[in-house]
Amino acid sequence: MKYYLRLGFVLLVITVVASGILAYINGFTEPIIKENQRKAKEEARMEVLPEAASFDSISFLNEEVVYAGKNNEGQLAGYTFVASLYGYSSDVKTMIGVTPDFKVNKIKIIEQTETPGLGANCTKPEFQSQFEGKNETVMLVDKDGGEIVSITGATITTRTIANSIRIGLKFLKEIEVQSEPEEIHREEVTE
């Protein structure tokens, strides 16, 4: 009995020391990690919507905040949201900047583990730039009758990205068009 208590005690000492060290290190790495993640998202937002100077959260989509960006004069510069759908072998997450008239300003793939050499080519700038200026109605792969040119050999990935963006644009339009009549009304009153 006494022997087993000793075993337990030795294990206890080892785990206590280990968790103490880990707690100490976690104490100074955690804020840095949090800061890194926040910065990465902020940089992605700034990249897809460079006209905006400040961002206000307006809704949630795919467990991420949807932002409305305002420029230096306080006017609406556009929106950003994260589109996400399951592609060929992973969730493909895309940060999207949207102009006030609901066209894509710029996109940036922020998370994917698609097949290297095929689907993973979606991170190439040549691919991402083709989304710029496109609205919801043409946000379809060319094979589906839209204007998005598929990556060779990776139609599924391309389709996933186009579809996820289309869903996001639709969602954005719905929530924003609802609040619009109010603004128009207000303008009429001030006139």
Binding site: L140, K143, D144, G145, T155, I156, R159
Partner: peptide, 8 residues
């Protein structure tokens, strides 16, 4: 395959 994949 294309017919099965697409919704369009």
């Amino acid at each position: 395959k294309a017919l099965r994949d697409t919704t369009q």
